[in-house]
Design a protein around this nucleic acid. Sequence first.
DNA 1: GCAACTAATGCAACATTGTAGCATTAGCCG
DNA 2: CGGCTAATGCTACAATGTTGCATTAGTTGC
Lengths: 147, 147
Amino acid sequence: MPTPDVSPAAHLIAARGGRVTRARIAVLEILQDSPRSLNHDDVAARLAADGMPHDRVTLYRTLDWLVEQGLAHRIIGPDRARRFKAGGETRSQHAHFHCDRCGHVLCLESIRPEEQFALPAGYQPERAELVFHGTCADCGRQRGTKA
Amino acid sequence: MPTPDVSPAAHLIAARGGRVTRARIAVLEILQDSPRSLNHDDVAARLAADGMPHDRVTLYRTLDWLVEQGLAHRIIGPDRARRFKAGGETRSQHAHFHCDRCGHVLCLESIRPEEQFALPAGYQPERAELVFHGTCADCGRQRGTKA
DNA sequence: GCAACTAATGCAACATTGTAGCATTAGCCG
DNA sequence: CGGCTAATGCTACAATGTTGCATTAGTTGC
Ligand SMILES: [Mn+2]
Ligand SMILES: [Mn+2]
Ligand SMILES: [Zn+2]
Ligand SMILES: [Zn+2]
């Protein structure tokens, strides 16, 4: 095998002009492998599980860098903790759904609030954050079964 | 003057069944007097200006209590600090506008996102938070004058 | 008005989330 | 390989919010 085994994550990182480090590859792959958004602790736990312990500060900086480069996007939950997700539409504005039961956050990429509302005169919106809170489909089924 | 001088704020507090304390009256009046939403520091500064220094923890608890009782409402800014505002529609869900230049937050009580969007099947929204970010009317005027 | 009861307060210590400075390591490039 | 410097790791710090508990003060009954 001459040079076939460079991961897609590594390619994305290199294409942004950043150095391809183990930390960036590992974090980006973790985000890509997760269908859910992850907070810092989630990512740190997965790194540790992979036998790749990491400095807390480095993880903050790595995640921030991925967001800057458009490889991930971030939303701020009601628990004032940031959650991250890779893939999908990382650039565009879209709504999210936060499940108050299981705590997970879902991207609703078809809902784009900035296109829908007229603001008072003089107000110049640059982006919009729309977060729904409630019960997700999984938790709703469990409740339906239970009570 | 026999018994005329019980402030409206005191009435509201008593009507909720809570004890009418100096802290609650002062904080509620500060929120009522401000057209802008205020964070903890803002409120603390106004308390201090009134010669009424207050414990940080008590202020947290007082503000939380006012929100619980429906006398104020709270939004979480992108700076992960809570902002509070009294009066207006403290119960209903409405959108907000956060000015990235001056940091102030405005209630947009005519915009109610939960009435406008259809979510995927199984998702049960209970409330929605919609926050626009950009430049407010005041800051927009200043920029127009300047550059 | 006064005493008693307890909600509310004040204080100290702690928790969580995120940042700044700086020496060291390790990607990258020739 | 050797040099350059981006990225890391570490320590210390900042901002925001919470917990436990002793003390104070609002209310209620008399
Ligand atoms: Mn998303
Ligand atoms: Mn509001
Ligand atoms: Zn759920
Ligand atoms: Zn402004």
